[in-house]
Design a binder for these strands. Structure first.
Lengths: 257, 257
DNA sequence: ATAATAGTGTCTATCAGACATTATACC
DNA sequence: GGTATAATGTCTGATAGACACTATTAT
């Protein structure tokens, strides 16, 4: 029998092995800022990324993504969930795998292969959390700040750039907008959320397209009360606006049809 | 000074580290089979996955994805390129990252975090290669065989299922169809390639849509000779068919517009 | 002539895109 | 009444979807 066919002959330490496999999390949130105007109006929404200031070597003092090393009893998804909770206090939000970062030399601590995730969180969840800890060590930055102004540790600028591209794509092709909205929302709110993530999205006939084109049936439904009457809200506008909620249907997109 | 701020105090071996970070490759190819008919006709095209029969423990004798461990002087993408070449003889084809597989216990050799890639290769490249090595050890299987009939090693069934979903999505949303086609091709060939990967794709007006809708301008262009006359081919049909080539434009897709 | 695949005509309903207009509130 | 946002009307041209029809070759 071939001696490679025996477990007892297998030596897991024959070659050098990685020094760690962390999960790093790009946590996106939409901040809402009240606007002081004469009449009711939508708050300003801005896409922001959470960063923490590093205390330890390497890159001590620099801003970087929250994250930490995976353990041998958990999947990387579980690592990301755990670190998200430990480092930022956020629990159970949308968390999705992005990519792996493995260029030799990317981490001065050794051979460290990092797995990036991105999370989407409503601002309210963060506000509770932030009050609870050391304010100077956690920051919410706009994408422009994170990508152009800050000097980030590791290759985290690349990771954030990739995550931004991914979230823009998903914002247009899926219904992840729901992660930044309450259960029931107006179409202006939805439009504003999309534009906050994809600034060059323009759709003058947005309301009509989303409400009355056959090909988009199944994305949204009107909210109705127990008598079947449409429910509207005038929280953000003079004239009340119809409330909608997301359904689970996402049309299949194709460049060929 | 905080003692965590010194490189000299950093111990990379304080915690258990992974026993390896392999790259596994889901190599897709479209096999072409001549059909014996009275007249000229397109060959049958079928999507297939390359598997190798394992020689060593674990899962010796079972079919599994080609792949191998990453080294500390290369990125995982480079690992995948190298393994693709070493294990299958294929060089320089489309190779793209898929996802990470890290469930505890997924590999009996230890704590091994696997990185799946997928590759797209024309059949011709494989044919040259296959003749050159031990025929029994390499196989090309249809997706149905790989997912339903074979008993694969590791979690490779899940990986193939994920890769299949991904390639179906990309086939409709990008121009990766070009990876399975010659530089210049007819619209029937393109349609056939799409259907080989996404069997339920149906578009009766395919030719008209791709050639004469404004919103799809920039995907394809007609091949023309030095005098500007359209070039056609009758390799696969009685009546010659116009040849096309891909351009670099891919329209941005959105469920909202 | 016949068969086979490539490609166009044609018709209706739907959709896109651009503006104008009306509707419903608060002030 | 004035103002702000929500929603609809309306018009033109483009597209979708279905089916019939014509075109170009090999045999």
């Amino acid at each position: 029998m071939n001696d490679q066919n025996e477990q007892s002959n297998y030596d897991v330490k024959k070659y050098r092995t990685p020094d760690g496999a962390p999960a790093d999390i790009v946590m996106f949130t939409l901040t809402k800022r009240e606007r002081k105007t004469v009449t009711k109006t939508l708050p300003l929404r801005e896409l922001r990324v959470m960063l923490i200031r590093r205390r330890a070597w390497p890159f001590a003092g620099k801003w970087a993504l929250p994250g930490g090393f995976s353990r041998d009893d958990e999947s990387l998804y579980e690592t990301a969930m755990r670190e998200l909770k430990e480092e930022t206090g956020v629990v159970g939000r949308h968390l999705e795998y992005l990519s792996v970062y493995s260029d030799p030399g990317r981490d001065p601590r050794g051979w460290i292969i990092s797995h990036a995730f991105f999370a989407l969180v409503e601002e309210e969840v963060l506000e509770k959390r932030q009050a609870a800890d050391d304010a100077g060590e956690v920051g919410l930055f706009t994408i422009e700040e994170a990508l152009e102004e800050l000097d980030l540790g590791f290759d985290h600028r690349d990771i954030i750039a990739d995550a931004y591209r991914r979230i823009q794509e998903k914002m247009l092709q899926t219904t992840i907008a729901r992660k930044f909205l309450p259960q029931e929302f107006t179409l202006s709110e939805l439009y504003q959320v999309i534009k906050a993530v994809v600034p060059d999205f323009e759709e003058p006939n947005f309301i009509r397209k989303i409400t009355s084109t056959r090909s988009r049936k199944g994305i949204l439904e009107e909210v109705r009360d127990e008598n079947g009457n449409p429910v509207s809200s005038n929280q953000y506008s003079q004239r009340p606006a119809q409330l909608y909620r997301f359904l689970d249907n996402v049309p299949r997109l194709s460049i060929y049809s």
